[in-house]
Every structure is written in C-alpha cells, then in structure tokens.
C-alpha cells in the first residue's frame, strides 16, 4: 500500500511540476513581447494602472534575468501564494479574486458530482435488471452524456427560467439583496443554484448510469456469478456482489471524469453568469487578464490533483485487493 500511494503521489507531484512549467513557458513562447501586447490588449483607461502593471509584469517575468533564474523566481512566487495581480479587477491579487469565486464553483460542482454519481450508479444497476427499462433508459442515458453541458444549461434556463419563469437564470443570488446570514439570502442562493446544479447533474447522471449498467452486465457474466447461480444463491446476494464489484471501476471512472466534470461546471457557470471560476475565466479572457487565467489554471489543476488523491484513498477503502498488496485496477 505505501508503494501504491508512493506511485500516485509521484505522479501528482510530476503533474503539478508539468502544470507549473506549462504556465511559466506559455507566455515566453508567445510571439512578440508579452508585456507590451498584454498591456495593449488590456485596454485600461487609468494610466497609473498601466504603469503599475508594466512594472509588475516586467518584474514578474524578469526578462532581463537568465532563464533558470526566471523559472526559479516563478516557483518562489508560487510558494508565497503570489499568483500576481488581476488586470480585470486591478489591483486585487489574483489569489483573492479566485478565493472569492471558489465557494460558488465548489458549491455547484461537489453536490452535482457526488449526487449524480450515487444516483447514476443506483439507477444504472436498477435499469440493468429490467429489459423494458434498459431499452428506454439506455438511449436517454447516451443522449444525456452526448449533450454539451452548456446546451442543456441553455435549454433549462430557457425552458424553466425564461418561458416558465419559475427559476432565476442569472447570478448566484438576487441582485436586490445583499449577501448576509439570513433565510432570505439562503433561499435566493438556493433558487439560483438549482438550475445550474440540475444541468450539471443531468449530464453527469447519464454517464454514470450507462457506465454502471454496462459494468453490472459485465459482472453478471463473470465466473463467480455463474458459480453462485449454479449453487442456487439468491438473486439478492448475486446482485449485491455484482453491484459491489461494479462500483470499483466507477470509482476509477470518477477520477478519470474529473477534468470533464470541471469543464462542464465552467461552461455551465458561464451560461448562468454564476460567479464561480467559469465566470472568472470568461472575464479573464474578455479582459485579457492572463494572470487571472493562469492563476485559475493552477488552482484547478491543484484541485483536480487533490480530488484524485481523495479518490485514490477511497479506492483503497472499497477495493480490498489494494490492501493485501496485490495492486488492483486503479
């Protein structure tokens, strides 16, 4: 088991290293003078802001220093938690801008991922048992996983928000109230959360349900099931075993799907102007705020790595084979 975690941590460490290096390299590979073109594209009116940014960038990129020194400085700044200053919200540090948006993204992403995973697995296992349900649920599931997140979000916003008018379609809470600890505010948060949550949940749900359905069918063909059947074991016991074993690849699948799920959350937030990281990305791109964009990139990579590690730990808990030191599927 230490070997298993050792390997995983090595991979995550290397991944982080690669991500930071990409982040450092890309501005330096950009054709032309990045500082100049950024300032030009940033298109900011206040002259003092422009000057401050120029100083900041030149300092941060440190183009007069040797490359290795630039690279070392980049890492040093990173470890101080210094991701630079946002252009869009000048002079707020990027780290602060991100910190303000993160709760919204996590509040959307975590429930949607976890609930869709649990519900999708249950439904998939259930559908595998009934032919009529399997025949109707399967095409719907495939349709759902094939749906671009933003399109389902747009459809829901249009149908339930604009046409039916039952739910708000923009922002995280009503513009008429201030964030505070009150029932009104909480209710408003919940109202605004429902649609983005639902669109994320539905697309992911389709994928998990199909995955589980396929895994269950595979498990029900397995030799240990045949053996149990020839010994007359109850259907309940067989289904329990099959579900238990089919869950394992679904846990691994959760890790593999993280990137896609995060991407889904980002575009969903954009549709609903939900003030999370996705919304920030859009602002960063429209305002040519590269520091913000790079900061978000690093933040998401770190988040995904941590989530991966959590899933690895969970896998060890659910798959006994990893604990007896024989590897396992992950």
């Amino acid at each position: 088991m230490p070997r298993y975690f050792g390997r995983k941590l090595l991979i995550y460490g290397l991944t982080f290293f690669v991500a930071v290096t990409i982040n450092w390299m890309i501005p330096r590979f950009m054709p032309g003078d990045p500082v100049q073109s950024m300032l030009a594209r940033a298109n900011i009116a206040q002259p003092e802001a422009v000057e401050a940014m120029r100083v900041h960038y030149t300092d941060l990129f440190g183009f007069d220093l040797p490359l290795w020194k630039q690279y070392a400085n980049f890492w040093a700044a990173l470890f101080r938690g210094d991701l630079g200053i946002s252009i869009w919200l000048f002079p707020t540090p990027v780290a602060d801008v991100i910190a303000r948006a993160v709760p919204y993204t996590l509040g959307l992403l975590l429930p949607a991922v976890l609930l869709s995973w649990v519900a999708g697995n249950r439904f998939g296992a259930f559908a595998a048992r009934r032919k009529w349900l399997d025949n109707t649920a399967l095409p719907i599931g495939y349709l759902l996983t094939a749906t671009p997140y933003m399109w389902l979000a747009i459809l829901l916003a249009w149908g339930l928000g604009v046409v039916a008018g039952v739910l708000p379609v923009a922002g995280a809470y009503s513009f008429a109230i201030q964030p505070e600890w009150s029932w009104d505010f909480a209710g408003s948060l919940l109202q605004h959360w429902l649609l983005p949550f639902a669109s994320l949940f539905l697309v992911a749900f389709g994928g998990w349900a199909i995955g589980m359905r396929n895994m269950i069918i595979y498990e029900l063909e397995a030799d240990y099931v045949r053996y149990l059947r020839s010994l007359g074991a109850s259907g309940r016991l067989i289904r329990r075993y099959a579900f238990r074993n089919a869950i394992l690849p679904q846990v691994t699948g959760l890790a593999l799907q993280l990137g896609v799920l995060v991407a889904g959350a980002l575009v969903t937030e954009i549709v609903f102007s939900y003030p999370g990281l996705g919304h920030l990305i859009l602002q960063a791109i429209q305002n040519q705020d590269f520091f913000l964009l790079q900061g978000i990139f690093l933040f998401i990579v770190v988040g995904v790595l941590i989530a991966n590690f959590v899933i690895d730990v969970a896998y060890v808990v659910v798959d006994p084979r990893t604990r007896v030191g024989m590897g396992g599927a992950a």
């Binding site: 397995a222 240990y224 053996y227 020839s230 016991l237 238990r244 006994p320």
Partner: peptide, 28 residues
C-alpha cells in the same frame, strides 16, 4: 452440485472466502 471448469475464477474477488461462504449459506 458442481465443481466448475473455471474454479480459479469462481470466487468473488472482493469478499474474504469465509465471509462469502457464510453469505452463500445464509442465502440458502
């Protein structure tokens, strides 16, 4: 009863053998 051809893979890989036997017997 049967001892199947595929004995090597006839046991549920994620259950301890004693537990599997107990659960199998209980289900009967």
């Amino acid at each position: 009863s049967v001892i199947p051809q595929y004995s090597m893979s006839a046991l549920n890989p994620t259950r301890k053998i004693g537990k599997m036997v107990a659960e199998l017997l209980a289900s009967r």
